[in-house]
Design a binder for these strands. Structure first.
Lengths: 123, 123
DNA sequence: TAATAACTGATAATCTGATATCAATAGCCG
DNA sequence: CGGCTATTGATATCAGATTATCAGTTATTA
C-alpha cells in the first residue's frame, strides 16, 4: 500500500463507522455508497493490506466466513443473530473461565465466546 | 440407510472410540484401519445419514471445517490445540454467562465457548 | 501537465470442501 | 444359493470464497 486511494479509505471508513465485524460482501455493499464502482476484488485487496499493516483483524466464526473489524478494540466477544446473520460486539467477559477446566496438562491461551440468538432488529 | 454395512459401522465406531469431534478426513484416516479401501465419499454419505437419524451432531468451529461427534452427550464445550488442530471435549460450563450481557433487546438462545491453546500431547 | 507506476474493476482462474455419477460390489430376502 | 437393489469407491463435478490477470485509470512527483 503506497498510495492513498478513495477505495481503501472507503473500506476503512466502513469498518470504523459500522463498528462491528463485517464480511467482504458486507463491506462492499456499504462502501459502494462512498465509491459506487467499487469492486469486490479491491475490497479483498484492501482487507489484505490492512491485515498486514495491523489496522484490521479477522474474526472467525463457526460455520461462517471470515469477517473483519478494526484493530485495537479491547477484549470483547460477539453475538450472532440467527435470523439476519449480522454479527454484533458484546462488551464484557466472564474472565478466567475457571468454571471450565480443560483436561489435565492442557494450556489455555485464548478463549472465544459466541452468543447466538435474535438481535433487537429481528425481534 | 437400509442396510448394515461395515463402512457405516466403521464410521460410527470411530466416532465412538475417539470420543471427540472429528472432521471427515480424520474419520477416514482412522476408519481405514477397519475398512482399508474406504473412500471419502462414503464417509460423507455416512455422516449425512447419521445426522438425519440423529445419531451424530455437527460441531462448528471458528475458521475450521465442520466436525462431527456422537449425539447425546451432555452440554459441554471444546478445546482446540493450535499446534495439532485436534479438538477435545471440555466438561463443565460457566452457566448463564451473566458476566457477558448482550446489547439491550437481544435474546441469547445459545452460547458457545472455545478454548484454544496447546494440548497435553503437544506440550 | 506529463510521465510513471501503483491501483482499480471486471472477470477468469483457482482452491477447497462437499456432492453427483456410474460401474462394480455386496447385503438381504426368498 | 441367486437375484435384486442399496451401497460403495474412484473420480468428475459443483459451489463458494478468494486470488490472478490485464487493460484502463489515477495518484504522485517533477
Amino acid at each position: 500500500m503506497e498510495r492513498k486511494t478513495k477505495q481503501r479509505e472507503a473500506v476503512l471508513q466502513v469498518l470504523l463507522t459500522e463498528n462491528r465485524p463485517l464480511s467482504p460482501p458486507e463491506i462492499l455493499d456499504v462502501a459502494q455508497a462512498l465509491v459506487p464502482r467499487l469492486g469486490i476484488a479491491t475490497v479483498y485487496r484492501a482487507i489484505k493490506e490492512f491485515l498486514e499493516s495491523g489496522d484490521v483483524v479477522s474474526v472467525d466464526l463457526p460455520g461462517e466466513g471470515q469477517r473483519f473489524e478494526i484493530m485495537g478494540k479491547r477484549h470483547h466477544h460477539h453475538f450472532l443473530c440467527r435470523l439476519c446473520r449480522k454479527l454484533y460486539e458484546v462488551n464484557g467477559c466472564p474472565g478466567t473461565l475457571d468454571a471450565l477446566p480443560p483436561p489435565e496438562g492442557f494450556l489455555v491461551e485464548i478463549h472465544e465466546i459466541l452468543l447466538k440468538g435474535i438481535c433487537v432488529s429481528c425481534a
